[in-house]
Structures are given as structure tokens and as C-alpha cells.
Amino acid sequence: MNIIKNIKNSAIKVLQTEAEAVQNLANNIDGDFESCVTGILNSNGRVVITGVGKSAIVATKIVATLNSTGTPALFMHAADAIHGDLGMIQKEDFVICISKSGNTPEIKVLVPMLKRMGSKLVALVSNTDSYLADHADFVLNATIKAEACPLNLAPTTSTTAHMAMGDALAVCLLEARGFSSDDFAKYHPGGSLGKQLYLTVDDLVVKESVPMVKETADLKEVILEISGKRLGATAVLNEAQNLVGIVTDGDLRRMLEKGGDLGQVKAKDIMTKNPKTIEHKEYAIRALNKMKEHNITQLVVMKKESLLGFIHIHDLMKEGIV
């Protein structure tokens, strides 16, 4: 029991330490941060991010975030930079060096070379009194009180702080560029996230053999239409071919439970009036959200005032959206 308690306490302490550090970063958003964002926006170059050790891993994550949100970015390992990779850097680029101490040997060798190339140098550091910070054009201050590691050695809080500062930078650039969900979809065409951003209802709607009956249809016709089209429901139209309701298999069960003279039942007697609909141009994810909101499994798809078909939750599941 004591071991389990110690595990829980240690985990909570780590999370609290890192959460406090990230919260404190808000106090470090200053003129340098703002100038860095505007400088990148006005630059014709790219963002090149570099570091060594854990900082290099953080750098690759920030590069990925920038690229996916409209800011061209490259990763360059600081150790490889001095062995030929400096050739990827152009004068117009912004180079962000990530380092907790700002005094690592690789960084000290790299900084003078970057300065001679004329690129803007950004220091993302946890030590503003460092070689890197002193020589940078902009300093992103990610100072922390201590690592979450009880020895205060393993990079834990510092890497979390650096990553959070990188996220802040990426989101500021995203908002300043007016980057939209449509833009985001262009960079994320794969996986469920991509499908949520580009698949529309029109891509999934069942347009052929759409179940529909007139509001005067008898019970037998309604049942045959529902079972024959295998969508679990049928649209109900009036004489002008306008949608006036929907009959689901649930409506049929509830009618049978009530009893009565089934021979006299018409579609209009058991239909749900004003059924939930969605326009065919809407994103498929919005169809899913509407189904969840109303606790239903299908929507009637409309093209303005005309019935186009049905979209069922199973259609969304097959595409991996659910």
C-alpha cells in the first residue's frame, strides 16, 4: 500500500510542478516574443529549429507543429550543423536554438557561425544569463524553478516549458496568418483528423434507392420501404414532394405497442414531423455532432429544399470519423 501511495504522490508532484512552470511562462511573454512573431511573419525565409539531446527532440515536435499550421520549418541537429548541415540555412531564415542552459559546447560553436551568415537568431532558453541568450536577437524566456526530477537533473519541467513556448509561438503565427480549418485540412489529409476536416456529407450520403413514401402510404408500404432499402427509416413526402416527416423502425415498434386497427394506419399517422436534417455541403463531422446532440442514428440529407438521401452513423464509422 505504501508503494502505491508513493507512486501516486510522485506522479501528482510531477504534474503539479510542470503545470506550475507552464503557468508561470505567461509572465515571460514580452517584447522579444512579440518581435519574434512579427519578424517571422514578415520574413521571406523559413524557421529552422536546432538543439541537442532532449532539446533536439523538442525541436522536432515544434517543427512539426509549425509546418502543420502554415509556417514552413526545418529541423537541424546542432551537432550535425557544424559538420555540413549549416548549408540548409539561408540568410532570410529565423534560427531558433533550444537549450536549457544556453551554454552547451555545440551551441557555443554554432552561434558565431549563424551570426556570420546573417540569419536572425532566437534563443529558447531556461537560462537568460547564458552565452546563447547574450548573442541572440530575440530571447524566448522559458525559465523554470526546478526540474520535476527529484535530483533536479533529468530534463522534465524544462522540456515541457520549451514545448509549451513553442506551441504559443505556433498558435500566434497561425492566428496572425488567418489560418483556417480549410487550410489545416490541406496539411492533414490522412487519418480521422483529416477526414473530419475535408469529408462532407455529400461524400457519404446514400443517394441511390433513397427510402421514401407519400404521407398517405399505408402501413404495409411503409414497412416494405424501410426493410427493402435497409436504412432503418424512410422519408415521408407530401403531394408537392416536400419532406414532411420520417418514419423509423422505432416509430413502427411504438405503434405496434399501442395496438389499434393497423389496417387504417397511414405514414402521416406515425411519422416524426420536422425530422432532423443536414445540408449536403456540411462537413461530415457536423453530421456526427448533430446525431450525438439529438441522440439519433441518421439524418435526412437535403439539397436546399430537395430530399437527397440519408446519412447514417454507420457511414461515419466506416470512414473512421466516429
Rank of each mutant, 00 (worst) to 15 (best):
231 L>H: 07
184 F>P: 07
168 A>D: 07
311 I>R: 12
231 L>W: 05
109 V>A: 09
21 A>G: 11
168 A>C: 14
80 D>T: 08
105 P>L: 02
240 A>M: 00
109 V>W: 01
235 A>P: 04
236 V>R: 07
67 N>Q: 12
165 M>C: 07
258 K>A: 10
196 Q>W: 13
99 S>Q: 09
233 A>E: 14
17 T>A: 01
27 N>L: 11
95 V>G: 02
74 L>M: 11
127 N>I: 09
229 K>F: 02
281 K>G: 01
322 V>K: 00
193 L>W: 01
163 M>F: 08
270 I>M: 09
55 S>H: 07
263 G>F: 07
309 G>M: 00
319 E>I: 02
45 G>I: 09
165 M>T: 11
60 T>A: 01
192 S>M: 07
37 V>T: 07
13 K>E: 11
61 K>N: 11
286 R>T: 07
172 C>F: 09
102 G>W: 10
290 K>S: 11
189 P>V: 08
315 D>N: 14
259 G>F: 00
45 G>S: 12
54 K>W: 10
126 S>M: 05
92 E>Y: 09
4 I>G: 04
248 T>Q: 00
137 D>I: 10
132 L>I: 13
118 G>N: 06
272 T>P: 03
243 L>C: 01
252 L>F: 08
95 V>K: 05
309 G>W: 01
313 I>V: 15
53 G>Y: 11
313 I>Q: 08
240 A>K: 15
231 L>R: 15
175 E>L: 13
14 V>D: 02
96 I>N: 01
317 M>K: 11
58 V>I: 14
37 V>Y: 10
25 L>A: 06
83 H>C: 06
64 A>P: 14
11 A>N: 14
150 P>C: 06
2 N>Y: 01
193 L>T: 01
129 D>R: 15
186 K>V: 13
61 K>F: 06
298 Q>L: 03
75 F>K: 10
292 K>E: 11
24 N>V: 08
282 E>V: 09
200 T>C: 09
198 Y>A: 04
129 D>M: 12
151 L>N: 10
197 L>M: 08
67 N>R: 14
132 L>P: 04
232 G>E: 00
134 D>L: 07
228 G>D: 12
111 V>R: 15
309 G>S: 03
49 I>D: 02
174 L>Q: 14
167 D>N: 10
174 L>I: 13
74 L>C: 05
85 D>F: 09
190 G>H: 11
307 L>Y: 02
103 N>V: 10
232 G>Q: 04
144 I>W: 00
191 G>H: 12
215 E>F: 07
156 T>D: 01
275 P>I: 13
272 T>N: 11
187 Y>L: 13
134 D>E: 14
222 V>Q: 04
165 M>L: 10
214 K>T: 14
260 G>R: 03
28 N>P: 04
226 I>T: 03
99 S>D: 08
67 N>S: 08
320 G>Y: 02
198 Y>L: 07
265 V>R: 06
117 M>L: 15
286 R>Q: 14
231 L>V: 13
102 G>F: 08
37 V>F: 14
289 N>E: 15
86 L>E: 02
144 I>Q: 03
194 G>L: 14
193 L>Y: 00
